[in-house]
Simulated scan of single mutants.
Amino acid sequence: MRLITLALACLLLLIQYPLWLGKGGWLRVADFEAQVNEAHRKNAELIARNAKLDSEVRDLKDGTGAVEERARYELSMIKQNEIFIQIVGKGQAAALAPLAPKPAESPEH
């Protein structure tokens, strides 16, 4: 009787092996599900990026506003008869201070 129980326990373990560690086992399925979820997340990011790039391309093709904006901010271009005024903040003013001309000192008599 004891030999039959031991043999059945071994058969049960042999049957469980493919279920857990085999080609279509639960561990492998869980790994594939994680890979699929990662791929879906990456695809969603790429779809959002493509939509943004598509709208930017459409704007550059159809309108002049986007081209003008890029020329102003990236190339510092201005229109003819236009005055450029730059407002410098506190942090930028300290960085530009060494570049500013120093006031002339008054001569002592």
Rank of each mutant, 00 (worst) to 15 (best):
L3K: 14
L3R: 13
L3T: 07
I4T: 09
T5W: 05
T5F: 04
T5D: 09
L6M: 12
L8I: 06
L8N: 11
L8R: 14
A9Q: 13
C10W: 10
C10A: 15
L11N: 13
I15T: 14
P18T: 04
P18V: 01
P18W: 08
L19N: 11
L19D: 04
L21V: 06
L21S: 07
G22H: 06
G22N: 01
K23E: 15
G24C: 06
G24E: 14
G24H: 14
G25E: 08
L27C: 05
L27P: 02
A30D: 13
D31C: 11
A34N: 07
V36P: 00
N37T: 08
E38F: 08
E38Y: 04
E38D: 15
E38P: 01
A39L: 05
A39R: 10
A39K: 09
R41W: 09
K42Q: 11
K42M: 02
N43H: 13
N43I: 06
A44I: 06
A44T: 09
A44G: 11
L46I: 08
L46E: 06
I47Q: 15
I47P: 03
N50K: 12
N50T: 12
K52W: 11
K52F: 12
L53P: 00
L53M: 13
L53D: 01
S55C: 05
E56T: 06
E56Q: 14
D59Q: 08
D59E: 13
L60F: 14
G63R: 06
T64S: 09
T64Q: 12
T64R: 11
G65D: 03
G65M: 07
G65C: 02
A66G: 02
A66S: 07
A66N: 06
E68F: 09
E69C: 02
A71P: 00
A71V: 02
R72Q: 14
Y73H: 11
Y73I: 12
Y73S: 09
E74V: 00
S76G: 13
M77G: 03
M77A: 05
N81P: 00
E82N: 03
E82G: 03
I85R: 05
I85S: 04
I85C: 01
Q86Y: 02
Q86C: 06
G89L: 02
G89E: 00
K90A: 11
K90E: 15
K90Q: 10
G91V: 04
Q92F: 09
Q92P: 01
Q92T: 13
A93M: 07
A94M: 04
P98V: 00
P98L: 00
L99H: 10
L99T: 03
A100M: 15
P101H: 04
K102E: 10
K102F: 02
K102Q: 12
P103N: 02
A104H: 06
E105A: 05
S106A: 11
H109T: 00
